Simulated scan of single mutants.
Amino acid sequence: MSSATPLSPSFDVDRALQLARKTIDIEAAALVGLKGRLGDDFGQAMSAILRCTGRVVVMGMGKSGHVGRKIAATLASTGTPAFFVHPAEASHGDLGMVAPGDVVLAISNSGEANELTAILPAIRRIGVTLVAMTGRRDSTLAQHADIVLDSAVDAEACPLNLAPTASTTAQMALGDALAVALLDARGFREEDFARSHPGGSLGRKLLTHVRDVMRSGDDVPRVAPDTSFVDMMREMTQKGLGATAITDAQGKVLGIFTDGDLRRGVESGRDLRALAAADVMHKAPRTIRPDVLAVEAADLMEAHRITSVLVVETDGRLVGALNFNDLMRAKVI
Rank of each mutant, 00 (worst) to 15 (best):
L178A: 01
D261P: 11
V180D: 01
A4C: 10
A73N: 01
M214P: 04
R186H: 10
M172P: 08
A274Y: 01
L38Y: 00
A152Y: 00
N325D: 12
S216V: 15
V213T: 06
S167W: 06
R15D: 02
L293H: 05
I246D: 01
G96N: 04
S201I: 10
T169E: 00
L178P: 05
V295T: 12
L95I: 15
A278G: 04
I288K: 01
L19W: 13
S268D: 09
L31E: 08
N323W: 07
A297M: 10
A274D: 09
M233I: 13
I107N: 05
V104K: 03
D219E: 12
A298Y: 15
V85G: 00
D219K: 05
I123M: 09
A28V: 14
A298N: 09
L254C: 01
F188D: 03
L31M: 12
A16M: 13
L130Q: 06
H86M: 07
V332A: 10
T5M: 11
L262T: 13
M281P: 06
I26V: 15
L19Q: 15
S108G: 10
G36T: 15
E235I: 14
V98C: 03
D259W: 12
G39L: 04
F229C: 02
S196P: 00
V56T: 02
I24M: 11
D279N: 14
A28W: 00
A118P: 03
D138G: 09
A4K: 11
A113I: 06
A298V: 14
N161L: 11
N325T: 15
S8T: 09
V67T: 14
M46V: 15
G101S: 08
E191R: 14
Q143P: 03
F257V: 13
L310I: 14
A99P: 00
E89M: 06
T244N: 03
Q250G: 13
A132I: 14
G175L: 11
R204S: 02
A152R: 13
A90N: 04
L75K: 03
S228L: 09
T80L: 08
V103F: 02
G255N: 04
P221D: 03
G111D: 01
R211P: 04
P81I: 11
P285A: 03
Q238N: 10
M61Y: 04
G54M: 04
R37T: 10
V153S: 07
A145W: 06
L327Q: 07
G199V: 11
Q171K: 00
G60L: 07
F188H: 04
R51Y: 07
P290R: 06
S8I: 07
H92Q: 03
R37P: 01
S139W: 03
N161P: 08
L141H: 02
M133W: 00
G320Q: 02
R286V: 14
H66R: 02
G62P: 11
L183Y: 07
V292E: 07
G111S: 02
N109G: 07
K239V: 09
R125H: 12
A249M: 05
